[in-house]
Design a protein around this nucleic acid. Structure first.
Lengths: 192, 192
DNA sequence: CGCATTTTGTACTTACAAGTCAAAAATTGG
DNA sequence: CCAATTTTTGACTTGTAAGTACAAAATGCG
């Protein structure tokens, strides 16, 4: 009962995510948020409680959407190295195509809030761990299909590939041309 | 003539750099700065003009100190791959030893201000380009001494190593244990 | 010394960040 | 339709960010 909400909280989180993603946490004001969502300040605080609580929801939303995106990219058919190269290229392409060049929200959050925001730090750590595990599983799959040499340590290469992606997504924020990222991707996959 | 300054502007920039490095640009207040430097607000604005102008000086100071540090690490004797591994390990060790886990100020600045702050963006781009060039030169040196296979593209590996360092320094902000970084370094150098 | 010049400390200003609150509005169950 | 409940609107509050203003203090110079 009671008056129903005039807006979709789910869509509101989505909008908030995009603002936080573009401006970062500290530089985002409640005014930015209500403008982007299209509601009044009362509704915002009535629904979400605080800027920080909304940020946490936005970061979780980002995690969920990215987790799906990465897994989908890996699931297409083909040899492991082909899929890996295609995934990394697509990621770089998407980052560079973003007119705001926001890069990766998890990476940005790590750079801004690691150490000062417990919740955000743990969310980022989990996202990184998931990505690392996905890479590790991909390496193992490549070894089962005898496409990747068995002496490659899957755990080490999972860490390496996570590290590479984190680097790429930060570089995408300042890279002037796409070729530097492409060279990194090719050199990395070629040495696997 | 006129009254002489009661403080060392150079030391003030150093203190400001440390505050900006730890908290980021947006989260740093003028009060934080005057507290860290130990001067009054009047002196701060009389000397530096604005928070942003002081940030620019701090970022330049960071660039200068880091440029020296990296070159010094490379200049020690020994085979190229040994020096490379030692340098990367030392970098990771230093990042993890920092009680505040501030990582790299250039990386943090890229994540926070790329796209919105022209001056900061260009400074970061230059820092990255310098690092990339240093790695590229190191690869070429290794090829001249026949330690590194001539088919390795020095430019591509320069980009790759820059990307790896950027990734490592961001990972250092959220890494729970040092072994993940160590594995990345070893796997990278081993595949060279 | 007296004067021009520069720095310093502190009070002040303006604007806005983050959040609160009360009253009006919209809903459903009885 | 009434009562209870919840949302919305928008004004209001509190604190602080960023910077300004100005008088007092400290210097070198003639």
């Amino acid at each position: 009962m009671g008056r129903p909400k005039q807006f979709d909280p789910d869509a509101a989180v989505e909008h908030a995510m995009n603002v936080f993603w573009r401006k970062g946490y500290a530089a985002t004001t409640p005014q930015d948020l209500v403008d982007a969502i299209g509601i009044g300040k009362g509704s915002l605080y009535n629904t979400f409680g605080s800027k920080h609580a909304l940020f946490e929801l936005a970061l979780r939303r980002y995690r969920d959407s990215q987790a799906v995106a990465l897994i989908e990219m890996f699931e297409e058919p083909g040899p492991v190295k082909v899929r890996l190269r295609r995934t990394l290229r697509l990621l770089a392409e998407m980052d560079l195509a973003d007119p705001d060049r926001r890069g990766c929200m998890a990476v940005n959050t790590a750079a801004e809030l690691a150490g000062t925001d417990q919740v955000a730090t743990e969310l980022v750590q989990h996202m990184f761990a998931r990505t690392e595990d996905a890479f590790c599983a991909l390496i193992e799959e490549g070894q089962r299909s005898e496409e990747i040499a068995p002496e490659r340590d899957p755990a080490a290469w999972g860490s390496l590939l996570l590290n590479t992606v984190v680097g790429l997504r930060l570089m995408a924020r300042v890279a002037e041309t796409p070729d530097r990222l492409a060279r990194v991707i090719d050199a990395t996959v070629d040495s696997l």
